[in-house]
Lab assay of single mutants.
Amino acid sequence: TGIVNVSSSLNVRSSASTSSKVIGSLSGNTKVTIVGEEGAFYKIEYKGSHGYVAAEYI
C-alpha cells in the first residue's frame, strides 16, 4: 500500500512507460494497493484492473 504524493493529480497509465496511454488519474493523498514494480513504475490495483504510476510519486 502506498499514498499518492502529489499536489494536483497523478496519471495512471496502461503500461510502465511515460509514452503509454493515460487511463485515468489519482488525486494527492489517495491510498493505492501496489501489486508489482517495473522499473520506475509501480503496478497498482485500479478500477477492478491494473494500472501503472510513477514510483517517485508514491
Rank of each mutant, 00 (worst) to 15 (best):
V12I: 07
L26G: 00
G28H: 14
N29W: 14
S27A: 14
F41G: 00
G24Y: 04
S9F: 13
S17E: 08
V4E: 02
S20Q: 01
V32T: 01
I58Q: 02
N29V: 06
N29I: 05
G2T: 06
S8T: 14
V22H: 04
H50L: 09
G51Y: 03
Y57S: 09
H50A: 06
E38W: 07
G36E: 07
A16R: 05
L26S: 01
S19P: 06
T1Y: 15
F41H: 04
V4P: 04
N5G: 06
Y57C: 15
N29A: 09
G24S: 02
S27K: 14
S9G: 14
L10I: 15
S20M: 03
I34A: 00
K47H: 09
Y52G: 00
Y42W: 06
I3M: 09
S19F: 10
Y52H: 01
K31P: 09
V6C: 15
N5Y: 08
F41I: 01
A54Q: 15
S8D: 13
Y57Q: 07
N29C: 15
V32M: 03
G28Y: 14
Y46V: 02
G48L: 06
E45D: 07
L26Q: 02
S9V: 11
I58T: 02
E56F: 08
S27D: 12
A40W: 07
T33M: 09
S19K: 11
I23V: 07
K43E: 05
S15N: 09
A40G: 14
E38C: 13
A40S: 12
V35Q: 05
E37L: 15
V22S: 06
V4Q: 04
V4F: 04
S15V: 06
S8W: 15
S15L: 08
S15D: 11
G28E: 08
Y52V: 02
V12L: 03
E56A: 12
K47N: 14
R13I: 08
I34T: 00
N11I: 15
N29E: 07
E45P: 04
N11R: 11
S9H: 12
K47W: 06
K47F: 09
I44D: 00
S7C: 15
N11C: 15
A16Y: 05
N11K: 13
E37C: 15
Y57E: 07
S17W: 05
T1H: 13
G51S: 02
Y52I: 00
V12C: 04
A54N: 10
G39Y: 05
T1G: 07
I23E: 01
N29L: 10
Y52R: 00
S17N: 11
G24E: 02
E37W: 13
T1C: 15
E56H: 10
S17K: 07
G51L: 02
S17R: 06
S14C: 14
I58H: 02
K31I: 14
I34Y: 02
I44W: 00
I44E: 00
S8L: 10
G39W: 04
G28N: 14
V35I: 14
A40M: 12
V53W: 00
I44F: 01
K47S: 08
Y52D: 00
T30V: 09
G28A: 14
T30E: 12
S8R: 10
S27C: 14
K21T: 12
S19Q: 11
Y57R: 06
R13C: 13
I34G: 01
T1Q: 13
Y57V: 04
G28P: 15
G2E: 03
G2S: 06
T33A: 07
E45L: 13
V6T: 14
T18V: 12
E38P: 01
E37D: 06
K31Q: 12
H50V: 14
V22A: 06
S25R: 13
T33K: 12
G36H: 06
Y42G: 01
L10W: 03
H50C: 09
V53R: 00
R13V: 12
F41C: 03
V53S: 01
G51Q: 02
G48N: 08
H50D: 05
G48Q: 07
G39P: 02
S25P: 04
V35L: 14
T30G: 05
S49G: 15
L26Y: 02
S9C: 15
K47P: 02
V35P: 01
L26M: 06
T30L: 06
I58W: 04
S7N: 11
S49L: 10
T30R: 06
S49R: 11
E45I: 14
E45N: 08
S14W: 08
T18K: 12
S19D: 14
I3Y: 14
Y52M: 02
G39Q: 05
Y46W: 11
G51C: 03
F41Q: 02
L10D: 02
S7I: 11
Y57M: 08
R13W: 15
R13E: 03
V32N: 00
A54R: 13
V4K: 04
S14V: 13
L10E: 03
G51M: 02
I23F: 03
N11Y: 13
L26T: 02
R13A: 06
G36L: 05
V32E: 00
N5S: 09
N5H: 09
V22G: 03
H50Q: 06
Y57G: 10
G2V: 08
A54T: 07
N29Q: 10
S8Y: 14
G36V: 04
A55E: 04
E56L: 10
Y42R: 02
K31A: 10
L10S: 04
G39A: 06
Y57F: 14
N11H: 14
A16M: 04
T33I: 13
S20D: 03
S7M: 12
I3D: 04
V53I: 08
H50R: 04
N11E: 15
I3T: 09
T30P: 03
T1R: 08
S9M: 11
V12K: 01
V6L: 08
V4Y: 04
T33P: 03
N5L: 11
G24L: 03
Y46I: 03
G51T: 01
E37Q: 15
I58L: 06
T33D: 05
S25W: 14
N29T: 07
V53L: 03
G2Q: 05
V53T: 01
A54D: 10
G28Q: 12
A55L: 08
I3F: 14
E45Q: 09
V32Q: 00
Y52S: 00
S9P: 11
E45V: 13
G24A: 03
G24P: 01
K43V: 09
N29G: 15
T18D: 12
Y42P: 00
S15I: 05
N29P: 07
S7R: 10
N5K: 11
A54M: 14
I23P: 01
G51F: 03
Y57H: 11
S27P: 15
N29S: 08
V32G: 01
K47G: 12
S49W: 07
A16V: 05
I23N: 00
K31H: 10
K21P: 15
S17V: 05
V32Y: 03
G36R: 05
V12N: 00
S49Q: 12
G39F: 05
A54I: 14
T1K: 09
N5M: 12
I44M: 02
S49D: 08
Y52L: 00
E37S: 14
T30A: 11
K43A: 05
T30Q: 11
V12S: 00
T33L: 09
H50W: 15
S8A: 11
N29M: 11
N5F: 08
G51W: 03
E45W: 10
A55T: 10
S25C: 15
E45C: 14
S14P: 05
I58K: 02
I44Y: 01
A55G: 05
G28I: 11
I3H: 09
V22L: 07
S19A: 11
I3V: 12
E56S: 09
S17D: 14
G2D: 04
T30K: 06
E37M: 15
E37P: 05
V4L: 05
V35E: 04
S19M: 10
L10V: 15
E37N: 09
K47C: 13
S49M: 12
S7A: 12
E45M: 11
S25A: 10
Y42M: 06
V6F: 08
A54W: 14
A16N: 04
V22K: 06
S49F: 10
Y42F: 10
E38I: 09
A55R: 15
I23Q: 03
Y42D: 01
G51V: 03
I44H: 00
S15Y: 08
I58F: 05
E56M: 12
S27I: 11
T1L: 11
G2N: 05
